[in-house]
């Protein structure tokens, strides 16, 4: 159980700033996801936490103590990589027991804890197998066992599920979550998959271009995104420019009522957004009713995805699978004020 604090963490590679002034606090026993597209600096941050990479500026603290001068091998921040998982020259038992052997633990104790760990990752009796005899999922679990056996201060996982197929991914996701809760290890994992982050993490740190965009619980990224970019990353491209005046927003389609206590943007220029699944395609009242044109519709099995022209902006909305509308129709839709969120007027959206 270790409290991790990143203070003004910055890493430059020549002229490129890979991570820019990152401030973030991970509570003891918390599971955090670093989320973002490739090259956004999430793996660089992970490497700085392990000490494999030194920060250009800023500090990494474990339980209030600076780790910058502490070498990787003494930090107790164990990393599980997405590739090159197991040492090919060692069997499973030696792989799992590696950290304990390095710490000078007796062979008997190592053997005991290795078999305990293999039980934990549901691979008992695999001690004498060689890495090449294992499937990708099994290798991943052994790599996890090897990391957990040393009872690390912080467990770092770099895209741990990226190389697995869909079923294994689900299984592994549950395993990581269960073990992490059971052992109560502060854990940070890197992913570019927002679904994975949402399902696994207590909190998500979303990064773009080395800058932390938002650090919050998963739900917040859907309901209260910081910016249009964050909303877009979480598959919400429904944006409509407007001007907030107290408890309503003036838009090109008329005035929309909002809940003043729910939104955070002050009066003035704003961007209105409502998630596709929160739009009522079959309105229940006259409040916030707007008329829009149906551009396209796609049957998605359990629901229907409808593309709408909302004052020149393309919006998506989800309706019941049996919704009877035609492309080209102008239909009334309702934007429930409980689900209207206001974004800052960035990038003209």
């Amino acid at each position: 159980m270790t409290h991790v604090m990143l203070k003004g963490l910055t890493r430059r590679f020549d002229d490129v700033i890979a991570v820019n002034n990152l401030n973030l606090e991970v509570e003891s026993g918390e599971l955090i996801a670093f989320l973002g597209p490739s090259g956004c600096g999430k793996t660089t941050t992970l490497r700085m936490i392990t000490g494999l990479l030194l920060p250009s500026e800023g500090d990494v603290q474990f339980d209030g103590k600076s780790m910058v001068a502490v070498p990787t091998e003494k930090r107790g921040a164990v990393m599980v990589f997405q590739k090159h998982l197991l040492f090919p020259t060692m069997d499973v038992a030696r792989n799992v027991g590696f950290g304990l052997k390095m710490a000078g633990i007796s062979k008997k104790e190592i053997d005991r804890r290795v078999s305990e760990m293999l039980e934990l990752v549901h691979l008992p009796g695999f001690e004498t197998r060689r890495p090449h005899e294992l499937s990708g999922g099994q290798q991943q679990r052994i790599a996890l066992a090897r990391a957990l056996i040393v009872r690390p201060n912080v467990l770092l996982l770099d895209e741990p599920l990226a190389n697995l197929d869909a079923n294994l991914r689900l299984e592994m996701r549950e395993l990581i979550r269960t073990i992490q809760r059971e052992m109560n290890i502060t854990s940070i994992f890197v992913t570019h998959d927002q679904e994975e982050a949402v399902m696994l993490a207590d909190r998500i740190a979303l990064m773009f271009d080395g800058v932390l965009q938002q650090f919050d619980v998963p739900k917040a990224f859907y309901e209260r995104p910081n910016s249009a970019e964050v909303a877009h990353f979480f598959r919400n491209d429904n944006f409509l420019a407007g001007t907030r005046r107290g408890d309503c927003v003036e838009t090109g389609l008329g005035s929309l009522a909002i809940l003043p206590d729910h939104v955070t943007q002050p009066d003035g220029k704003v961007v209105v957004t409502v998630r596709p699944e929160d739009i009522y395609l079959a309105p229940t009242s006259d409040e916030n009713l707007i008329h829009v044109k149906v551009l396209a519709q796609v049957y998605m099995g359990t629901y229907k995805q409808v593309q709408l022209d909302v004052d020149g902006n393309k919006w998506l909305a989800h309706g019941p699978a049996d919704l009877d509308i035609r492309e080209g129709d102008t239909i009334p839709i309702q934007l429930p004020k409980t689900h209207i969120w206001l974004l800052p007027p960035a990038n003209g959206k």
């Binding site: 392990t50 990787t72 091998e73 107790g76 990393m79 040492f87 590696f98």
Partner: peptide
Amino acid sequence: VGPQYEEIARTLGANSWQ
């Protein structure tokens, strides 16, 4: 082989000789 095996070993507490 690349540096990754060595990096894994490092995070698991192995010093340079190990």
